[in-house]
Amino acid sequence: MSLLAAGTAAPEFTLHATPDQSVALKEFRGRNVILAFYPADWSPVCSDQLALYNELLDEFARLNAQLLAISVDGVWSHAALARERKYHFPLLSDFEPKGRVARAYGVYDEQHGLAQRALFVIDGEGVIRWSYLSPMGVNPGAAGIVKALEALPSNNIQKTLPADGAQEAP
């Protein structure tokens, strides 16, 4: 199965963000969601990638978007990474059954048992509006995300939405 394309309904999911808290995609209806699948906690490229997104949370909020990062790592690894790197967005754990959500989005690497490095912008109706698969070792930056968010009709009408999308992950 390959990367889900723009126009596809985003598969629903509920994943753990911490040992005792879950995040469901449908909680974000009415707001845009950036899904950033990445291969592994602690690997240098994704850390740079997430460090960049961590600096852009205000910009994402201005574009009415919530960032959710997803890997197959467990919640305790995510918790340690978020604390060490001061990430202020949820790291979701696609851990059991392993990679189920990555598979649903067409970005699971069966050979290595990891999520591929893939980005999705999902609109407030739950429809994928942009998707991008980056080569494993290449940090895709944020230009594509920002461009896709700016192109959404809801962001195009020069209306500045309240920044209530800036709620931090628990």
Partner: peptide, 24 residues
């Protein structure tokens, strides 16, 4: 500067551009 970099595809630091193209 920062947002111009984001729009230019900066993905970490340092990022270098040679005559306007990101060098990786």
């Amino acid at each position: 500067d920062f947002m111009g970099g984001v729009h230019s595809g900066v993905n970490g630091t340092p990022s270098f551009y040679v005559n306007g193209y990101l060098y990786q």
